[in-house]
Nucleic acid binder design. Structure first.
Lengths: 229, 229
DNA sequence: CCAAAAGTGTTTGACTTACACCCATGC
DNA sequence: GCATGGGTGTAAGTCAAACACTTTTGG
């Protein structure tokens, strides 16, 4: 049995994959492999298959196009204007992925036709993908103001100055390192290592690791690492 | 031309319509008019048609099933487990609507087969609609912690004690009226009327109206009307 | 005049900011 | 020994919480 007299349509998943390379935020794009707009740059996307959920589709597509597994992946918003795809009606469910660029950079560049673009130097994109990216960045800024989600972008070991650069990049603001340190250290989210990163100063900055337990437990709590204005 | 070898599926919109009657939060449900699960209680839903966007579909369905127009309506989340509807594959995009119950109570009860249920006395619902409601309430709590969205639930004129009851109901907490008053009055969101509501005390409480300008302009700003714990 | 809700004022303490200053080290 | 980024300490200011108290008015 089926519902009668109803229009059936394709459902696609498109993922906005965001990374931070230590200086800038980047988005992973791919050259579309089929018509229309073949060879044009596009978000990572694909159609939802018969027996998979939306989340499963997002994970599968991410894996197929980039080899990425077990990354932070969150559903964002669904787009459904009737003519957003000129070929036929397609509903697009977007997901946002946050990944540590360094861990995957080689793999992605070598094995797949994907490329990282800085967020202020994006190429022209197909369909409504630019709108999707705008929405993802707005959401990320909003979420990062309140929750420590940006840690997903960092490697296992990172320094507080790196953290500061990351926050400053996303919010285009300057952060007082002394106050930031105090706040983040009092949050119980970081575990200090003995090792130092000497790549950007003579004295060296201590490495920290994320305390995954308190991170998960207190993720929904509102943290306030940013200055008010 | 069409994309080949892809599965097309139905796309539905389901709206969680939330109201507050002065004492409790309620959700508007309808008795489903067609099989399967005919006569069972369900969210307001329907299929997305050929030439309408998702937002348009949500507005149209809301209007058709309840007569409601121009209400607060926000896309929430999309649900797509393969067997969530036993008849055939259906992707459901959920929307949350917030309305002033009193303004529409008569209209809805008389003209449509819809009914308000208190959120802790919901009937058994079809498919995954309970999960959708849970998600909507979580989202509403989250949003109301940070933004003055609950004003959407109130009539044009309301008192501060009513506001307090509304916040207390959603967060199951007690609020100090003196501190709450000070915070909300200093927010610039309210315009004081000369009239008083004497229905719940001898002295009477002044009516206020929402300042729509500052409301819209500062909606995204973080307000903090709730106590910390 | 009293009960009961509305509303005002004040103290306390926690948290943020701003900023002076010290530390470590490669050159 | 000095320049440079990393990190600590502290005083001043701001804001929310707690709570005692006054106002209003129907019965």
């Amino acid at each position: 049995m089926k519902y009668s007299n109803q229009e059936r349509m394709l459902v696609a998943v498109d993922s906005i994959i965001i990374g931070f390379d230590g200086n800038e935020y980047k988005i992973l794009l791919i050259q579309r492999g089929f018509a229309p707009e073949k060879e044009k740059w596009s978000l990572m996307g694909g159609f939802v298959q018969k027996n998979e959920s939306l989340d499963d589709a997002a994970s599968r597509i991410l894996d197929q196009l980039t080899g990425l597994k077990n990354v932070y992946l969150e559903q964002l918003h669904s787009f459904g204007k009737p003519n957003r795809d000129p070929i036929e009606r397609v509903i697009a469910v977007t997901y946002m992925a946050l990944i540590d660029i360094q861990q995957y950079e080689q793999q992605i560049n070598n094995d797949f036709h994907a490329r990282w673009f800085p967020i202020n130097q994006l190429p022209k994109l197909i369909f409504d993908h630019e709108e999707m990216i705008d929405m993802a960045l707005m959401k990320l800024r909003y979420k990062a103001t309140l929750h420590p989600v940006l840690f997903e972008l960092l490697p296992d070991k990172f320094t507080i100055p790196q953290l500061i650069t990351m926050y400053e990049g996303l919010f285009a603001t300057e952060i007082d390192k002394r106050n930031f340190s105090r706040k983040i250290l009092s949050s119980d989210l970081l575990i200090k290592e003995n090792e130092k990163d000497k790549s950007s100063s003579k004295r060296g900055a201590f490495y920290f690791r994320l305390n995954r337990e308190t991170y998960k437990k207190n993720f929904q709590r509102i943290h306030n690492f940013l200055p008010k204005n």
